[in-house]
Design a protein around this nucleic acid. Sequence first.
DNA 1: TCATGTTTGTGATATCATTCACATATAAAA
DNA 2: TTTTATATGTGAATGATATCACAAACATGA
Lengths: 199, 199
Amino acid sequence: MKRLFTYRLCLIGFKRKGFDRVYSYTLGESAGASAEQVRKDFSIFKITGNKRGGYKIDELLSAIEDIIKHQEDQYMIIVGMGNIGRALVQYKRFKLRKMIIVASFDVDPSKQSKRWNIPVLPMEMLEDIIKKFHVKIAILAVTEISAQDVANRLFDLGIKGLLNFAPIILKTPDDVVVNNINLCDELESVIYYTQKVLE
Amino acid sequence: MKRLFTYRLCLIGFKRKGFDRVYSYTLGESAGASAEQVRKDFSIFKITGNKRGGYKIDELLSAIEDIIKHQEDQYMIIVGMGNIGRALVQYKRFKLRKMIIVASFDVDPSKQSKRWNIPVLPMEMLEDIIKKFHVKIAILAVTEISAQDVANRLFDLGIKGLLNFAPIILKTPDDVVVNNINLCDELESVIYYTQKVLE
DNA sequence: TCATGTTTGTGATATCATTCACATATAAAA
DNA sequence: TTTTATATGTGAATGATATCACAAACATGA
Ligand SMILES: NC(=O)c1ccc[n+]([C@@H]2O[C@H](COP(=O)([O-])OP(=O)(O)OC[C@H]3O[C@@H](n4cnc5c(N)ncnc54)[C@H](O)[C@@H]3O)[C@@H](O)[C@H]2O)c1
Ligand SMILES: NC(=O)c1ccc[n+]([C@@H]2O[C@H](COP(=O)([O-])OP(=O)(O)OC[C@H]3O[C@@H](n4cnc5c(N)ncnc54)[C@H](O)[C@@H]3O)[C@@H](O)[C@H]2O)c1
């Protein structure tokens, strides 16, 4: 599943370079997987290519999109408008992929503002917005200390999917999906493997 | 290996809550793994607990740190001082973990400045700084279009580990470790599994 | 001090993921 | 049209990970 995302990235890259077909070998090489792996992955999802002719990039991409992608716009919110929250709010790629940030929230009144196209609202308005837009997905970018409390509040208000930037493991109801981004750990992991490679 | 990071997070959480011991069951529950899994993981790394008494959190933490952690400070650079680059530069937790950002870089002269404690330098100074601090690790936060070019330059200058935020799969020498952070994909993955859970 | 119940540590077993190997299809060349 | 070289698609074999099951250790309380 994770690899599907990688394949997509690679395919977009190939397309931009002017190719209109790929072979399992080509794609595997670029995605860091074996050719058989690529084919097995596709066969699991019933994606089928052309013997001898490989895969048409456009067909492949749209097959992958069909698996990965929600067809309608997904409304989302961000809670916590600190350094990372502000960066995310400005990220244009989300909209390209039909992920629409309808509002952001912060306890700190000095961060609140309705001037920009994505407003920064006080926490009291969470419920209103979540109900109004039927928001199911949230990005959590508050300080570590508040993260569990804010998360609980979001779960109570019906949030079912969370992208969490706080470096803690949240206690979470069973029907909620949480994806943790821990940049310190990612960096430490780079350092760890780098030192491994250098013996 | 990935789980070690999760265990560490959980242990820090337990410690803060005042516990001084954990059982494989407790830790597993909190980290989303089975108790046997936790014990197997520890036994691989020769981490040993106390039958009947579980594991002392402090000992466990320092055993994990010994595996994960580099003991000396790691000097690093960030290239690309846009939205995400600026957020990262301000993140204090890196320093706590002995990861020191010595400088950041951008082509755009309007982003360059030496006023702050972490200076934003022109690209011409890359070589100087990398050589001066023996930098081996870099964070790449430039636009997608420039990412491969800038990465190549970094590899030429001796960078061996990269945390890449651009949504492309970089072509990379064999002795370089790259860790990709793709927030769109992470969010899409949350949406995907959320929809799965809701049937 | 001793019995007891609980938790570890780890082989044996089961499950899941990857690679191998090859029959089959087909685009391209003759 | 026929041949041929090259990719796919997929069972079978291998390898990696996770779970099970249980003996051994030992903190705790009688
Ligand atoms: N800055 C980074 O590059 C970075 C990188 C990785 C992870 N993180 C993590 O992301 C989180 C935010 O980091 P940051 O650097 O943006 O910190 P920050 O201090 O700049 O921002 C935190 C924001 O959360 C708000 N907040 C705090 N408690 C709140 C609550 N109860 N309800 C609503 N809003 C609340 C604060 O007002 C502040 O605006 C932290 O957990 C941090 O560890 C940050
Ligand atoms: N903003 C986000 O929240 C976010 C989230 C995920 C991923 N990303 C990715 O991170 C990268 C940066 O995103 P951003 O939002 O900060 O974009 P941005 O446009 O704000 O910043 C990009 C920065 O890179 C600099 N740059 C461009 N080409 C360069 C070069 N050749 N050498 C040195 N510097 C160069 C630009 O001057 C600019 O300051 C992009 O690839 C983006 O897709 C951003």
